[in-house]
Structures are given as structure tokens and as C-alpha cells.
Amino acid sequence: MRASLSAKIIAVCNTKIAKNGPGVGLSFYAFFANRNDDPPLLMEAAQWWILTHGLDHFEKAEKIRLMVERGD
């Protein structure tokens, strides 16, 4: 995963956790605007989320942040 996507995921997770608490869930769509202006980046996130890790549609933000920080 490219560094810019990792940083974006961590920032979004941090914001969601700060706003909604440690149990907040999110999907990989949370990292993108409603109007997708970067399809290759969306596909990279989807591949990491679905194909590489087999994650459910919604996962805990803390789990995702930890996975990205570890470089999973």
C-alpha cells in the first residue's frame, strides 16, 4: 500500500475514534469522498481490505489503524 493511502487511513481512523469512541466501525469507503476522484486509489484500498485481508464490510477503526501501522 502506498504511503499516502496508509497516512490517510490512519488519519481517518484517528478522527473517527476521537469523535465516536473506540468501538466505532468503518468501511474502506470512509477514506474517500462521495464522488470518487481517484479510482486507482479506491481499488488499492479495496484490494487491501477485501482480497488481501478478507475483512468484513464494516470493521473497527482501531483494528484497521493497527493493521496499517504494522504494515499488514
Score class of each variant (00 low, 15 high):
Asp56Lys: 07
Arg35Ser: 06
Phe32Gln: 04
Ala33Glu: 06
Met1Gly: 04
Thr52Pro: 07
Lys8Arg: 14
Met1Asp: 02
Lys19Asn: 07
Ala18Ile: 08
Phe28Leu: 12
Gly54Val: 15
Lys8Asp: 01
Met67His: 03
Ile17Ala: 01
Lys63Arg: 14
Ala61Gln: 00
Ser4His: 14
Ile50Gly: 02
Ala45Asn: 02
Glu69Ala: 14
Gly21Cys: 12
Ala33Tyr: 14
Val24Lys: 02
Met67Ala: 08
Arg65Tyr: 14
Thr15Lys: 08
Trp49Val: 04
Ser6Asp: 05
Ser4Cys: 08
Lys63Ile: 15
Leu55Ala: 02
Ser4Trp: 15
Ala30Cys: 12
Ala30Tyr: 07
Trp48Cys: 01
Glu62Asn: 07
Leu26Phe: 09
Val68Gly: 02
Thr15Arg: 06
Glu44Cys: 09
Gly25Phe: 05
Leu42Lys: 06
Pro39Leu: 11
Gly23Met: 11
Cys13Ile: 14
Ile9Phe: 05
Glu69Gln: 11
Asn36Met: 13
Pro39Ser: 05
Lys16Gln: 09
Phe58Leu: 08
Ala33Ser: 12
Leu55Ile: 12
Ala46Asp: 03
Lys60Pro: 01
Ser4Asn: 09
Gly21Asp: 04
Ala7Met: 13
Gly25Lys: 06
Phe32Thr: 06
Gly23Ser: 10
Ala7Phe: 15
Asn14Arg: 09
Gly54Trp: 11
Leu26Ser: 00
Ser4Asp: 06
Glu62Arg: 10
Arg65Ser: 09
Asn34Glu: 03
Thr52Leu: 13
Phe31Ile: 08
Ile50Pro: 00
Gly21Glu: 04
Trp49Ala: 01
Ala11Ile: 14
Ala18Tyr: 08
Lys63Ser: 09
Leu55Gln: 01
Arg70Ser: 14
Thr52Lys: 13
